[in-house]
Design a protein around this nucleic acid. Structure first.
Lengths: 230, 230
DNA sequence: TCAAAAGTGTTAATAGTACACCCATGA
DNA sequence: TCATGGGTGTACTATTAACACTTTTGA
């Protein structure tokens, strides 16, 4: 590189760059998000999202996956970038630019033993506690992005176990969209989506009568590539 | 801050942070974007978006507005964050994390004399030339974001002069959505949006007969807050 | 036997799409 | 007078929304 080119960069300041993960899960008819009750400085005693600093040899996406794996044990998880937050006062300890990602996990699969190690806790997105930094805004933006996405893309299945009842799927949509859905209309639409298929198994836990279990068939979806549930 | 808290930051690397602006304008029935033909290092001879490095006392949004003002003379312009790009090899000169913003400007208002100073040039988004870095991806993502946004939010007016004909407005939508729109259906929908109002003036430039000029009334829109053109 | 959730079709309302001709004007 | 773009309404189609009862089973 020429001297000129070096100066092009060198004359500019550098910043800490972080990622914050909005880890969503679905349980008890609630969309939940994983927070950390910090027992270390800075911001001891505050609740925050799970985050980490970007390192030299990774992209933001990789950093977010790393943070996610560290806190849940999960890899190869569906994530989407929410946005980058850069207000001057967003972190009083230092100037930190932070990119938020949301992740959708199946709460049955993550390593819940890890929670104790970092004081993790699941909270409902309907009644968020007081959260530090601009993390509340990140969660709200992520929730809104998810709301839009779920209407025309089959990402919701990431929040459910591999097989699920239609009642579960409907409640997931109702919770994320924030509106009730007519049961018959919903089931009609599901039956039109040929990539949501009966497994043949019956779930006897949720009701006396038992409900058919369904699964999302990714291969079929990729062939059809048309999606709309509500 | 305690020693512990200081270390929390200090053990992590820092990065150059940049903004890249996708400056859109509408002319000749084309959605155009402003590029720079670089005649300086690094990457002399390449075409790039207009960008700049984040400075200590500004947010990313402010940096993007600064870059925009420097290259167009315009302030208080509609901008939206597109996303943040962080691939390890995206800038071979140094590790740079870059956040893209798109801006919508009225090409009649910007200072075109500035173009000469930095070798700026407008290109159609339909036939993008070869562009350096990941800037092509940024433009495509911005275009897609704009496409979605324009269907349910009145941002398109930022690309038009304060008063415009319905033919102009329709062509803007056709170009951004990439599909033809039926004239009568389009005008029907416009007439339902009471915040798109006749100015009473007639434009005699575009046709012999003359076409009514319309304007977007932001105050009325804010009261009604319902929008859909196609 | 009954409470609780599963499962199932039809009709009405709304929204979206297709379509063709006359008008006013300047060259 | 004619070429050019401006302006207008109706009928059809597709999509979405509303709605109620029967089934199964374990407690």
């Amino acid at each position: 590189m020429t001297q000129k080119a070096k100066e092009y960069y060198r004359d500019n300041p550098q910043f800490y760059v972080a990622v914050d993960c909005i880890i969503f899960a679905f349980e008890n008819d609630e969309l939940q998000v994983l927070l950390q009750q910090r027992n270390f400085e800075p911001f001891r005693g505050e609740k925050t999202l799970l985050g980490g600093f970007l390192q030299d040899e990774e992209s933001l996406e990789e950093a977010a996956q790393r943070v996610l794996q560290f806190h849940t044990g999960l890899t190869n998880i569906y994530m989407e970038q929410v946005g980058t937050f850069s207000a001057l006062d967003r972190d009083p300890g230092a100037r930190v630019i932070s990119t938020a990602y949301y992740a959708l996990i199946d709460k049955n699969l993550y390593d819940s033993a890890l929670l104790k190690e970092y004081d993790g806790e699941w909270v409902s997105t309907d009644h968020l506690p007081s959260i530090h930094f601009d993390h509340t805004k990140m969660i709200e933006q992520a929730r809104e992005l998810l709301r839009r996405k779920i209407s025309f893309s089959p990402v919701g299945f990431n929040l459910l176990p591999p097989s699920f009842t239609l009642a579960q799927l409907q409640r997931l949509y109702e919770v994320i969209l924030g509106q009730e859905i007519d049961k018959r209309n919903f089931r009609k639409r599901v039956s039109e989506m040929q990539f949501i298929e009966k497994t043949g198994e019956i779930d006897k836990v949720s009701s006396r009568r038992g409900a058919s279990l369904f699964q999302f068939n990714m291969e079929k979806y990729n062939l059809i590539h048309e999606f709309k549930l509500k």
